[in-house]
Structures are given as C-alpha cells and as structure tokens.
C-alpha cells in the first residue's frame, strides 16, 4: 500500500473565508426570521346554541344587562348597566360590577352579564368591557393574579341602526 506523504508545514493555514461567509449567512437568516411574538390570551365563553339546555342549571343567575351604543364612527358613545348610565368609562363599569358582586369569589356564578351592543361598535370596546367585567389583576407577592368577578358573559342580539 502506498501512503501518500503530506507536505509537512509548521502551521496549518485554515481557510477562513468560506466559513465566515456561511456564518454570516446563518446570522442574517436568523436575524431575518426573528420576530417577536406577542403573547396572546383568551376569554373563555360558553355559549350553547340551544337555550333549552339552560334549564338544567338549578338556579338562574342574576342578569346584569349592559348596553353599549356606538356613534357614527363605531366608537363607544354611551354605556348603561341595568338601565343606569355609566359616565366614567370602563373603570366605573368595573367599580359598579365590583359593588354588585363583591370580591368574594364564591358568588361569581350567580351573576351573568348580558352585553348588548350596537352593530357597528368596534370590537375593541367589547373586549374592554369584558375585561372590566371579568375581573382585574392584583399583585400578590409581586405576581399578577386575576381576581375574577363575573365569569358568565352572554351576548344579546346586536342593535342595528337605521334599519
């Protein structure tokens, strides 16, 4: 067998250029694909299609009708809870719900907020309202915890303006 003899050099000269090319390409690839994913969360809503299944629950929850109207642009115009107007925005709505339900989590099942909106109302305000009704964040030992108020939310038929 013939063994090929290599030239013996004192120092092996590495070819850096191709490696750097590839490394930079990798770097550029990962920078390009890097995207900050926003954390998303859900509001859980149970809405059975047939109302007949509701008769199974022993106690009907107290209904708190929330009416939201929109102006021509779809922004929130007025808000009424049980017929009385709310002027202080979602903070007042939250306080009102808090006053009704109380912070004790035991009673949360006994209330149900029925949201009725104008057809054109922007969805954002509905989420704001649900946020105000659902509860709030409280700092407990430096960590945010959700204090829940009303878990049950239902939607009433939207009101269409101008026929």
């Amino acid at each position: 067998m013939k063994v090929r003899k290599r030239d013996k050099t004192d120092k092996i000269e590495l070819q850096m250029t191709p490696m750097i090319d590839i490394v930079f390409q990798l770097l550029v690839f990962f920078i390009m694909t890097f995207n900050i994913v926003e954390v998303e969360g859900d509001f859980n809503i149970l809405m059975p299609g047939a109302p007949s299944t509701e008769t199974l629950t022993d106690v009907a929850p107290v209904k708190l009708p929330l009416r939201m109207t929109a102006d021509a642009q779809g922004n929130l115009a007025t808000m009424t809870l049980e017929g009385s107007p709310i002027t202080g925005g979602f903070d007042e709505l939250h306080q009102r719900i808090l006053g009704k339900v109380g912070e004790g989590s035991s009673s949360e099942g006994d209330y149900e907020v029925e949201i009725q909106c104008d057809f054109e109302l922007k969805y954002r305000f509905v989420i704001d309202a649900i946020t105000a009704v659902r509860g709030r964040l409280k700092k407990i030992d430096g960590e945010d915890e959700v204090i829940s108020l009303v878990e049950k939310i239902r939607f009433a038929q939207p009101v269409k303006k101008g026929g």
């Binding site: 926003e38 954390v39 998303e40 969360g41 859900d42 509001f43 859980n44 809503i45 149970l46 809405m47 059975p48 299609g49 779809g74 909106c117 104008d118 057809f119 054109e120 109302l121 922007k122 969805y123 305000f125 509905v126 989420i127 649900i130 939607f155 038929q157 939207p158 269409k160």
Partner: peptide
C-alpha cells in the same frame, strides 16, 4: 364591527359549536 363578530358566533352556534375563545393580546 361587533355585529359581524356576533354574526360569526351565531353562525358557529348554529353548526353546534359551544365553546368560544375570544382572543386578545396581552
């Protein structure tokens, strides 16, 4: 528009779906 969202929910209900999750950004 909220009405459209509700229409979509109603449509899903009519197909038998019950559980809805309204997604929002944290």
């Amino acid at each position: 528009p909220t009405g459209k969202v509700q229409k979509l929910i109603t449509l899903c209900q009519s197909k038998g779906f019950q559980r809805f999750r309204l997604r929002a950004k944290e």
